[in-house]
Design a protein around this nucleic acid. Structure first.
Lengths: 217, 217
DNA sequence: TAAAACAAACAGTCTATACTGTTTTTATAT
DNA sequence: ATATAAAAACAGTATAGACTGTTTGTTTTA
């Protein structure tokens, strides 16, 4: 009787919580924050409303936990990517593509849902800021690889990373109003070439042949 | 009896509508889309709820009109800026600063409020897309000034403008989670210098001394 | 006098949370 | 090993509040 489906309470509740968080993230991505309701979350997670309120006192608790969950998952994914490539010969292009995919594959869409809430809800902000900082730390790690490989000043490399991330955020935001793959591919090409040449010169000196037109190898 | 406050109906209703739109934009900026209610808009505009529903059938109509209003106002402001500087000797730095101020002074905060709604509301999107495109057209105009002055390829200049706007969008988004003026000043300096040097070379060839450290003149 | 602008009340829906009851698990004593 | 008490997990319902869209009534303008 204890072998098959017998799970401890902590396992069960952890499972339930995970279901709720994944459902919440899914609903944030598909329907958005303004349409997010607790009944919808319970239904999407295939959990009763009672179970939902048992684990999370308020709706805000659910959202905070869900965003934490997604960001920490992204951090873990990134750390694994870092470990796998710490010794390997990884190019600027590859890291750029990794970061772009990370953002464009839903992560920043979900971010755009809760980011406004952060402006208007101090508690929400207080609870999430540490997670966001952890996320950025993991980005710095991945960037340090490229920074070391090209013997670039870490200080300057960080500025370039930040610019890259801001650029990508703005690009993802624009994908909502502009469905135009070519347009974004062109921007990515432009940026890849710019970075490639900056790093080739150890960041910051003598970037040459910086055309906006470029085809990937 | 007709001299003092006697205004024609169209004037009155136009005034009321403007009050409603400005109130809506204000509430979007201060409280956000998820907290936006029609009673709150009426109160902020100092107008009865009946007046509100008289002029706008649904809440969505109000928001669409308000966003249109704000964007068209931004377009007008930009066009005036263009006219005033079409002949003047305007630098890359000045345009960059203009664009940054335009975005950072609330415009993109409000955008971040309705942008998610656009992902989930097809009608809302359909109605707003033309206005957004008009906004981008006016940006292209201002950019054309600098493009001509530096004899840069308009095609490449457009890519650089788009990258600039995406960068700024991402930066404004990040200001929500990171209150750090120095950080954003550094990014702006980095970008100004990059553009300055790119334009100095007619866009795209031989950017030298591209440091992330820079002080403004 | 007709139409537009405005005001106010209303009806229906929805949502978040609190509350009550039930089942399952765990710890403990035997 | 087993019985039992306690605690946690879960399910379902009730309720209070709020918001939207509508409708009806009143004032002002053309």
């Amino acid at each position: 009787m204890t072998g098959r489906t017998a799970r401890t309470q902590v396992e069960k509740s952890a499972e339930t919580r995970r279901r709720i968080m994944e459902a919440t993230v899914r609903l944030l991505q598909w329907q958005g924050y303004s349409r997010l309701t607790t009944p919808a979350i319970a239904k999407e997670a295939d959990v009763s409303r009672g179970a939902l309120t048992h684990h999370y006192a308020t709706k805000e608790d659910v959202v905070v936990a869900a965003v934490e969950y997604q960001l920490k998952e992204a951090i873990e994914t990134t750390r694994r990517y870092v470990e796998q490539n710490a010794d390997k010969d990884i190019s600027v292009d590859e890291i750029i593509d990794y970061l772009w995919r990370l953002m464009a594959d839903g992560l920043f869409y979900v971010t755009l849902e809760w980011l406004p809430e952060m402006r208007h809800n101090a508690l929400f902000k207080t609870r999430l800021i540490p997670v966001v900082q952890g996320f950025h730390s993991s980005l710095n790690e991945i960037w340090a690889i490229i920074s070391r490989r090209y013997h670039a000043d870490p200080r300057q490399a960080e500025v370039v990373l930040n610019a890259t991330m801001c650029l990508f955020r703005g690009m993802v935001a624009q994908t909502i109003v502009r469905k135009d793959t070519e347009y974004f591919d062109e921007l990515l090409s432009f940026w890849r070439q710019l970075l490639r040449q900056m790093f080739a010169n150890g960041l910051g000196i003598d970037i040459s042949a910086c055309s906006t037109r470029e085809e990937r190898s």
